[in-house]
Each structure stands twice: as C-alpha cells, then as structure tokens.
Write a protein that binds this DNA or RNA. Structure first.
Lengths: 232, 232
DNA sequence: TAGATTGTTAATCGATTAACAATC
DNA sequence: TAGATTGTTAATCGATTAACAATC
C-alpha cells in the first residue's frame, strides 16, 4: 500500500519517514481487532502490578501469546512509535488502542432478559472501561417489572420500542432463553437497535444492516475440555 | 501426508479408497475444533425446526459463515462420508462430532464464585449436552455456605482441596472477582484441578500441565461495538 | 440420463515468522 | 561505544478458495 509519505526518485525507493497517523480510516480486520483488545486487557491488567511505565513488544507478546514482531506491526498500524532499547510507553499504547477502537465514545445498551446472566453482565466490572453503559433491562416476568438491577430499571418487553427510542440505545444484549431469542431479536430490530450481542444458546439472524455477535461460550468450553479429556 | 491406503504402481498414483477412520489419533487444531463446535451447535439448533434429516455442506457453511469446501474437508477429517446429490446425514455428523470432541465422556466441574455469573453458568442449558456436569460451588461468603444452586451445594473455599478430591472434579470454572482469581487458581491447582475456565476479568497463569482458558468476553464486545460505532 | 453435490487436488491468499538494518 | 530493542522487508507457513472429476 502506498501512502502520502512514499517517494520514488530515480528508481530509488526511499523509506517513508512520515509521522504515521493512527490508521483510523479503513476497517480494522477482525483478527487485528482481537489482538488489540487482548493487548489492551493485558496492559491494563499489568499496570497495577508493574511500576515501570514502559513495556517491550516481547513482554506484551508473551502475555498475549503471539509473536513479538506481530505486536510491533500492530502498534505501528495504530500509530504508536516505540523507542529502540527502551520499549513502548504503556500509557501511549493504551490511549492509542482506546482511540482506534473507540472506547471513549459511549455506547448505550439495553439488556433483554433480567435473569442471572443479565445481572452478571450488568455488574461485570470493566465493561464500562470499554465505553459500554447499560441503560435499561427488559423482561417478560411481571414480578420483575420496576425492580432495579445494577442501577437500571426493569421494563416489560412490551415497552421495548418506546423505551429504547427514549433512551437512545443502539446495542441490545440478549440473555433470554433460546426459544424466545429470535422473536425478541426481531422486535429489537423493529425498535431501532443497530447491534445485538446474543448470549442465548442459539444462533439468531437479522437484516444485513444490523450487526449480530453470537457469543457461543460453548466454543471456549469445548476447546478446553477437548484437551483435558485427551490428556488423561 | 501418506496413509496406508495409498499406492504407487508404475508411477501411477492411485486414489485411495480406504474407509477413512475417524481421525481420533493426533490433535485437532484449534481452528478446526472451533469450526466443528460451530457445526455442532448449528446442526443441533436446526434439528428442531427442519424436518429433513440430511443437510448439505453448503447449508452448514452458510449457517456458520465458512466456505462449503471447508465443511466437506472438516467432515472428511472426522470420517463422515456424504452422498453426492443428497448431502450428509444430520445424525451421523452430530454423532461423529460428539465422538471426536469427546462429549460422551462426562467431565465433572466445580464453580468457584457463587455469584450471578456462577449461577447463570450452572443453569445454562446445553452445557450438559457437551458432557459437562457441575458438581459443586465454592464461595468465601459464609451466608452462602450450604445453600444450593442449580442442584449443587455451596462449600467454603477453604474446603476446596478436600471436596474436589472427593468428587473427582478435573475442571474448575472461575467466576470470582479479578483480584482473587490468581490466588484461587493456585489453590485449585494444588487441589488437583487439571483445567481452569477463567471468567474473571483478568489473565491467570498456571503450571504448564494445567490448561487455562481465559474467557475474555470483552473481546466479543469490542468487535461488535467497533463496527457499531464506525457505522454511525 | 442429466443434474446436483460430494471429495480432493491445485492455486491463491493472508497471516505468521525470520532476518536484519536502523536507532537509541 | 556496545548492546538491546524497534521497524520493516522478505520468506515461510498455513488456511482458504477455486476448480473439477467422481458419484449418486
């Protein structure tokens, strides 16, 4: 890929010296996104126990389980420069990732299904750090209406359209049983939700312009138990 | 790779006709494992709504979001043969995946942290289908001792070593706060646990022979919100 | 048979790793 | 300076896709 900093002169390719701007145009690839998120978790995690404010690519690489070259490439991509012999400034890396992944931009979400899982997600620390704020719960159990979980009121699913519009939520987190997941997803789309994070143990489908993340936790379970069972 | 079925005669390479045995020796690669799990979820999910007992590779591929060639390769790997013009028998595929991934072999697990997340996991339907059975809870809140969640008694974390030995659990599911995760993990290793599924929002480390799955749910969240925020 | 779908090889594509110069 | 770490290109490796013959 050529950028404005490149020059060809008399057939000699000069190395670009440009102050690389954070690559905020164009879409990050899924795998890159995942790695950046893991770097971020790792750096925030370590910041409490380490006194040093610089970190080498090798250290991040070890923590996340990738090659150190990969880490340097990813950081270069988002415009972070390290210092040879020293490393990367932890705070700079964290800030760059937050900027590129958009953590500063608040994202309002509703949780559909005020059960244990919904409550657990609402109280999960750290989600706020990613710019996520839960603004309401929905459930179809009248006993739960008007109760408060994690500071949010529980509404009837019948009120979804109105409440979601009022609060301006764009993301919905589905923690309902499998058999009602698709129906609720359809209603959420109708209510103007733009993305659905689905924890129900089923796959839901939506119109093309509504993003779905099917969080099949079982995938992680199977990987783990596969190795466990085979090592016995 | 050559297998016993291959033959070279006079320089002519014959196609092997062997009845491919399920590839149960050797270790499945992580990505293959993930795809097989997704096929499985998709097939079990559809079985309730579809009346047909055959399914084409193209259909599975669409459901899971991979190429249909990939599906046929994966199924060939685990020894499932399809019929041209017809497809694969749903039940055969499900059985083969269950066999290769070891779902028939029961895996006993304990949950450490009897909070909302722990409760949600215990009541999550479908885990039983993967051969997972929860046999006990541990918590350090005396108010919870001897209560029952999802049919399992809650013990004190101080009793972990003894109870885990008695029940013969090999897997531990960590749903405690981040700050106690590493300490509890160390104790679990000491108690003879062979694998830890970590839901605490931190990364834990263990001796090499204890498998860890750090379930960073945030990774899924970031991917979803990234696209959401950028599409506005 | 004709047509659809599997099974498998070959080609492409992308991601990871290796190598090494640049730099502090 | 010497040595360590970054930054970047080139090479390798593996995964995905394309092509097509085999098969029912």
């Amino acid at each position: 890929m050529r950028t404005a900093g490149d020059t060809d002169e008399g057939g000699v390719r000069r190395r670009k010296k440009a102050v690389a701007p954070a690559e905020t145009r164009g879409w990050m690839k899924r795998l890159t996104l995942e790695r950046l998120t893991r770097y971020y978790i790792c750096l925030c995690d370590n910041s409490s126990r380490s006194q040093s404010d610089v970190v080498s690519s090798a250290r991040i690489a070890e923590c996340v389980g990738v090659d150190d070259t990969q880490v340097r490439k990813d950081l270069a991509l988002i415009g972070v420069r390290g210092r040879p012999r020293v490393g990367f400034k932890r705070g700079e890396v964290i800030a760059a990732i937050r900027g590129v992944l958009g953590f500063e931009k608040q994202c309002k979400a509703v949780i559909v299904g005020a059960g244990r899982l919904g409550g657990a997600i609402a109280e999960y620390p750290g989600f706020a750090d990613f710019g996520l704020s839960i603004v309401a719960f929905f459930d179809n159990d009248p006993e739960k209406f008007d109760t408060v979980i994690g500071g949010c009121k529980v509404y009837s699913t019948g009120e979804m359209k109105q409440v979601i519009r009022e609060l301006g939520a764009r993301l919905a987190i589905l923690t309902c049983p499998a058999d009602s997941a698709q129906v609720l997803a359809d209603e959420l789309v109708d209510a103007g939700i733009r993305a659905i994070w689905n924890f129900a143990p089923t796959t839901i489908v939506t119109p093309e312009d509504v993003i779905v993340g099917n969080e099949h936790v079982s995938v992680g379970l199977v990987a783990l138990t596969y190795y466990l069972r085979r090592s016995e």
